[in-house]
Amino acid sequence: MDEDEKAALTEAIRNALRMIIDPEIGRNIVDLGLIYEIAVEEGGIARIAMTTTTRGCPASDYLKDAVSNCVWYVPGVEYAEVRLTYEPPWTPEMMAVEG
């Protein structure tokens, strides 16, 4: 898997994640800045670091599961690992555009 293929898979994952909305704000989690990192490694291993708008939000587990499910279904992904982090904490400034 060369760098171009990894970059293409990263982009495919990012696009797939756009179907997941934050239920409260109603915008997709990529444009909200909730996806901190998408790392693709050799053999189609994808590692995602994500956050939620509010620490302790009851929707956190659902969002994490949704990201995991979504990434597993992206063609080319053989293994997906999703990590929920609050470092740094999300701020509204991380949104792509005003919500």
Partner: peptide, 22 residues
Amino acid sequence: AFLTWLEAYGPVLGRAPVPRVQ
């Protein structure tokens, strides 16, 4: 509305299009 959304649509988030809480 928020808790109802979580109960109803939380389990299918990421698998199908879902409404917003609003």
